[in-house]
């Protein structure tokens, strides 16, 4: 299918595109209309190839959602998928741990590998244990804070472990998600009574308790306030050392703040993939330039 032309550039009145892109100090030039925010943390020194997406196409029935996308996912780096609504970024994310299989009528072509093994040949449950996911809406289970995190550990054990046996791992996961100090006295409180930001960090703690190699985040901050968003972004910046992080986001500032690599998708196609500096500084493609300039989406 031939890609449709992007819609014409729409400008708000009084919105001036600077004729010469502003410099952000270190010689980088921002794309038209996009002000570069401060970046969180420095990229990790070592990047390990974890997953490879090769010529991936996903369609729901006859409707294509993702079309021949190829990109690498590395531990030590955060990859952000950006693009307007319905561009296939969530579908791409969900196909990484085969959650697309839960959708009726979804079909998938191409290859995704995890540590050089085709995920299609792996047991779906085993794959999802190594590639865990956090969703757009915080979805803690209707249990206590402790049990939410312990759930994964208990299910992974062959016999149901005692509370004391999983306590250390639960605390560690909560600490990694920056929740342990806040939750210290209230581990037995219902998780659904927490604030939205705490719920989402609990979901991240839960996803980390499984000790995954890849962490998928589907617009994790879109339902949250700026303070919670900030906390989660700092968390993501810290996590990239131990896990490969893929984040889908609508928020370009966020993508710039946390990501080392950015993939811009439009109408199911991967338009451009590159380092965050390059994508926000001097994108190659016209469509990327327009999107980052706030023209459409």
């Amino acid at each position: 299918m031939e890609l449709r032309k992007p819609p014409p550039v729409r400008r708000l009145t009084g919105y001036e595109v600077p004729s010469s892109p502003p410099s952000n100090g270190n010689g980088l030039h921002a794309a038209a209309g996009f002000r570069l925010p401060a970046r969180l943390g420095a990229p990790s020194m070592v990047a390990i190839d974890r997953m490879q997406v090769e010529e991936l196409s996903v369609s729901y029935g006859h409707k294509p959602a993702v079309q021949s996308v190829s990109l690498p996912i590395r531990q030590g780096e955060v990859l952000a998928l950006i693009g307007p609504s319905g561009c296939g970024k969530t579908t791409l994310l969900r196909s990484l741990n085969r959650l697309t299989e839960l959708t009726r009528g979804a079909s998938l072509r191409g290859r995704i590998t995890l540590d050089d093994v085709d995920v299609a040949h792996m047991d779906a449950t085993a794959l999802r244990r190594r590639v865990t996911m956090v969703f757009q809406q915080p979805n803690p289970f209707p249990m206590s804070v402790f049990d939410n995190v312990a759930y994964v550990l208990r299910e992974q054990a062959s016999r149901r472990p005692r509370r004391a046996a999983v306590q250390g791992a639960v605390h560690e996961a909560l600490a990694r998600a920056g929740l342990l100090d806040e939750m210290a006295g209230s581990l037995d409180h219902p998780a659904l009574r927490l604030s939205g930001g705490q719920q989402q960090r609990l979901c991240i703690a839960r996803a980390l308790a499984a000790n995954p190699q890849v962490l998928l985040l589907d617009e994790p901050c879109s339902a949250l306030d700026p303070v919670s968003t900030r906390l989660i972004e700092e968390l993501i910046a810290k996590l990239r050392e131990d896990v490969a992080v893929v984040i889908v986001t609508h928020n370009l500032q966020q993508a710039y703040r946390v990501a080392d690599y950015v993939a811009f998708m439009y109408l199911g196609e991967l338009v451009e993939y590159g380092s965050a500096h390059k994508m926000f500084g001097s994108p190659r493609e016209q469509r990327t330039k327009e999107y980052i300039g706030g023209a459409f989406g």
């Binding site: 085993a126 996911m133 994964v152 839960r206 499984a210």
Partner: peptide, 9 residues
């Protein structure tokens, strides 16, 4: 879905 995405069968 949250539980499936954690690798619980």
């Amino acid at each position: 879905e949250g539980s499936l995405a954690l690798g619980i069968n």
